[in-house]
């Protein structure tokens, strides 16, 4: 599984949407289901997968599937 697939899966789980409904370019600005509740789940899920707390800059930057994938890919 690529980091992009993993990022989409995290968003799918957090928003309770099927994976097919999560576009690769989804962001909190263009994906309505990415609400505040989903955002909390996304952040905690990413932290769990990384095994550490996110830094302030990472917290701020995680606004899109692409950003999540990049961060997970670097881990």
């Amino acid at each position: 599984m690529t980091s992009l697939d993993l990022a989409r899966e995290i968003l799918s789980k957090a928003t309770h949407q099927p994976l097919t409904a999560v576009p690769a370019d989804a962001s909190l600005h263009n994906f309505d289901q990415w609400d505040s509740i989903a955002h909390v789940h996304i952040m905690l899920d990413v932290e769990e997968r990384l095994g550490r707390d996110l830094t302030p800059d990472e917290i701020f930057d995680l606004q899109s599937v692409d950003a999540i994938a990049t961060l997970l890919g670097e881990a």
Binding site: L28, H39, L44, P56, D57, F60
Partner: peptide, 20 residues
């Protein structure tokens, strides 16, 4: 910074982060 829902609210509304 760990009030994720609040951070998301500012981002969603287009606020600019001016400092940490």
């Amino acid at each position: 910074v760990r009030n994720f829902s609040s951070v998301q609210l500012y981002q969603k509304l287009g606020f600019k982060r001016v400092g940490t």
